[in-house]
Every structure is written in structure tokens, then in C-alpha cells.
Simulated scan of single mutants.
Amino acid sequence: MKFKDYYATLEVEREASAEEIKKAYRKLARKYHPDVAKEAGAEDKFKEISEAYQTLSDPEKRQAYDDLGRHGPGEEFHPSPEWDSRFSRGGQQEVDLADLFERMGFGGGGGFGGGTGDPRRPGADFPIRGQDVEVATELTLEQAARGTEVSFSLSVPALRADGRVEKQSRSGRIRVPRGVVEGERLRVPGKGGDGIAGGPPGDLYLEIRLAPHSRFKAVGHDLYLELPIAPWEAALGAEITVPSLDGTVAVSLKPGMRSGQKLRLAGKGLPHRREGAGDLYGVIQIVLPEKIGEREQALYRELAEASAFHPRLHLEGPTDG
């Protein structure tokens, strides 16, 4: 049969005390438990750890294992005749090492999953924290600005009486504070998966997504608004009103506004959690009327004749290279 180094599996020395072996097993079992671990091969690793612990946690089995001597992991070996006469039931030299110890029949319960050290079973000797669960919710900008309550419905892992894991439905309502932003994750303690063997439940994480708005675009706590103005307002300046989440705001435009220029309204963005708020930026867009009457056309012609403005002057002349 092939030798298995149970001490190396539990990452302890051969002289380790029973308490050190138990502590090492608890640490590794928490890490590789298939109901918790996400990495590939975790379940096989967990079985190896449990197999090693089932032997080394029992004084008689540990002594029998130590009497096998030292061999390299995976090395082919056969127990000595003396060992076989003391511990074996005969005809078992070709079985797996774990099967050999399981069939020996002395000491505590044998085999994987038979003892209280198996955290799959109720009454395991250490608790395992439940899984964290994440769910997304979509809010309007108004809800994000003022706070709201949202409903959630999800499935979380739960431990059955036979030690198997099944999905359990869970629903409820969560209070979302004002001032949340796109991509923020809110932690709700204790609303995730149930703990195993008396362990605490996991947490629920609520991921915030903001629904598209007909006027505003949110970037963090700042809001952006495309602000159309007429050519004469851009040239001469004007008194206009700008919409915000709190209603309209009176704003003075300076003469000579340009398309793409940003008009900042301090504190009119999304509020911060405790105090203050982001800003609202009106991005200037100079627009023409869809229809221009005869009188307006005449004024534009008069303006064209009177003005020396040449918007494409920088494009004239030879190009570089």
C-alpha cells in the first residue's frame, strides 16, 4: 500500500500534542470545508485532512500509525509482520491505508465523517461561520439622495440535520441610508448564510446600482446635467433657472459662455452620508431654435455682416508636416 504522511497533511510535527493536532485540524478544516472554500480541489483536501485527523486524534490509532515507521508520501510499503499480528485483521495489506485503520475496529468511531470532529455533522466540535451573500438593488437618484427601504429575496445555504447543505429562501426589508452611490456595498450583519455547528451567520452585502435618470448623470456624489442655452444668452449673459434634485435654482450666466463649459452649483449633488454634498455641474450646450422665422434670419444676416468673428481661423494655413 502507499504511505500517507498524516502529520504533514495536518502541518504538524510527529511530536505534536493532541491539542496541537486538534488545533491544526480546526484551522485547516475551516479553510478547506467544501461548504465554505471556493478554490478547486478543496473537497479532496478536506477529506485528506479529516482522514488524517480521524487517525491521529485517537491515541490507539495514532500509536499504531507511528509503529508503521517513517516513509515518504506515496511510497509503497507493507506493515511489518509484528505490526500485522498486533493490529491487522489479516488479508488487508493491499487495501488503502485509510481503509486499514477504518477496519481495525478499536478506539473511537472510524472512517471519514464518523467522529465529532467532522464539521459536516451537527454537534461538531467547532463552529464555522456562514457564507456571505451579495444581492444587487437598483435605486433612483431621488431614493439615493433621501434614503429609502428596499425588499430583498434570495437563497442562502443552510445545514440540514443530516449534515447536508441545502438552499433556504430568505426575504426581508433593508433600510438604505441617504447618500449612497453607484457600486457601493452596504453590509447587513447576520443576514447571510446560516452558520455550521453553531457558528455565527454570514453577512448580506447589498450592492447599490443607480437607475438611469432623464436629466442627471451621477459620478460619485457629483451630478452632471446637459444645460441648453440660446446663442444670445451665451453672448449677452442671462438669468436662468437650473433644475436640481431639490427643485430649481436661479443662476446668472456671464456673457461669452461656450459650449462644453461647466457651470458649478456647489452642494447640489448627492448628499454625503453624514454632512455636505457633492456638486451639480451644468454642461453648457448652445442650441438653435428648430425653426427660424424671417425676422430672426434677417437679424442673423445683419450680425454676420457686422461681426469680424472667424471661428475657423486656426484651421487655415498649411498643416504640420
Rank of each mutant, 00 (worst) to 15 (best):
K2N: 15
F3C: 11
D5E: 12
E11P: 00
K23A: 13
L28E: 02
L28I: 04
L28Q: 11
Y32S: 04
Y32G: 00
D35G: 15
K38I: 05
A40M: 05
G41W: 08
E43Y: 08
D44A: 13
F46A: 06
E48I: 01
E48V: 01
S50A: 15
A52P: 00
Q54G: 10
S57I: 01
P59R: 08
E60S: 11
E60I: 11
R62N: 06
Y65D: 01
D66A: 09
D67C: 06
D67T: 09
L68P: 01
F77V: 05
E82R: 14
D84L: 13
F87L: 04
R89I: 09
R89H: 12
Q92D: 12
Q93V: 09
E94D: 13
L97Q: 14
A98V: 05
G111P: 04
P119D: 03
R120G: 00
R121S: 09
F126D: 03
D132L: 04
V133S: 02
E134H: 11
R146D: 06
T148H: 04
F152N: 01
L159K: 00
R164V: 01
V165K: 03
E166V: 08
E166K: 05
E166P: 02
K167I: 01
Q168R: 14
Q168F: 06
Q168H: 11
S169N: 13
G172K: 11
I174P: 02
R175M: 09
R178S: 13
G179N: 04
E182N: 09
R185E: 14
R185M: 13
R187T: 13
V188H: 03
G193A: 15
G198L: 07
G199M: 06
G202L: 00
D203A: 10
L204P: 04
Y205L: 13
E207R: 15
R209T: 10
L210N: 01
A211M: 11
S214T: 14
K217E: 15
K217S: 12
A218S: 15
A218N: 07
L227S: 00
A230H: 07
W232C: 00
A234L: 04
A235M: 14
G237C: 10
T241W: 08
L253R: 07
K254Y: 01
M257G: 02
A266M: 07
K268N: 03
H272E: 06
R273Y: 07
G276E: 07
A277M: 04
G278C: 06
G278L: 03
D279Y: 13
K291E: 14
E294Q: 12
Q297W: 14
L299E: 13
R301V: 02
F309C: 05
H310L: 07
H310M: 07
G317D: 05
P318N: 03
G321H: 06
